[in-house]
Amino acid sequence: MVEPVLQISNLVKNFGALRATDGVTLDLRPGEIHALIGPNGAGKSTLIHQICGTLRQDSGTIRFAGQDIGSLGVADRARLGLGRTFQVSSIAPDFSGLRNVMLAVQAKQGSSFRFFKPVMRDRSLIDTAMAMLERVGLTARARIPAAELSHGERRQLEIAMALALGSKAFLLDEPMAGMGPEGSKSLTRFLDTLRQEAPILLVEHDMDAVFALADRISVLVYGRIIATGTVEEIRRDPTVRTAYLGDHA
């Protein structure tokens, strides 16, 4: 079997008396889309936060690209190739979409300790950033302040930034949320091609998208993974049906 890109073992996270992550073991293999589904408050975002380092686990290990990353900071993990989008979009609102992506490009290129050359005349930054914006379909809106972008456009912008990092794995927290049916469809097509670039851990409530995209699905309920399997296995699983899918299956 191929070595997984991301391997999470026995992860535990408590918020006071609430155990938001309860012994989660999960992996992400090269080329796959691994969907993480579960009811509101199950702990999906909390898990993503721990993988990226915005939250620190209480116990358990996180290995990424053959290295234990559980004690690294957010920036270090990002530099190793963890690209992520947030459930609530996280962008620099005063900057244009272009300059947001340029920030990611400059981080990828290496040093941010350059003090004199204007970025807006730096072709290497602009061209790479524009290429990423084109891939997510934001070219026409590139120069608008990010604060003025629609909810869906901000999701696209975040994905463009993750692309610009040359990520080795993508962690996407509900990228379809607020997209509208057309947006969801085109994003689904886009993610389908994205998996060739790097595997995706996809947190998503949109079951049409999940069933269309996922190679494997894990179901998280009250911080625990109650099932992992292919789309068919999960659809048939009786515990999953009662806990989450209900009539959707």
Binding site: V74, A75, A78, R79, D94, A107, S112
Partner: peptide, 11 residues
């Protein structure tokens, strides 16, 4: 503007 965003791109 957004500290977490900066860290998330690796800076």
């Amino acid at each position: 503007q957004n500290e977490v965003r900066v860290a998330t791109v690796g800076i």
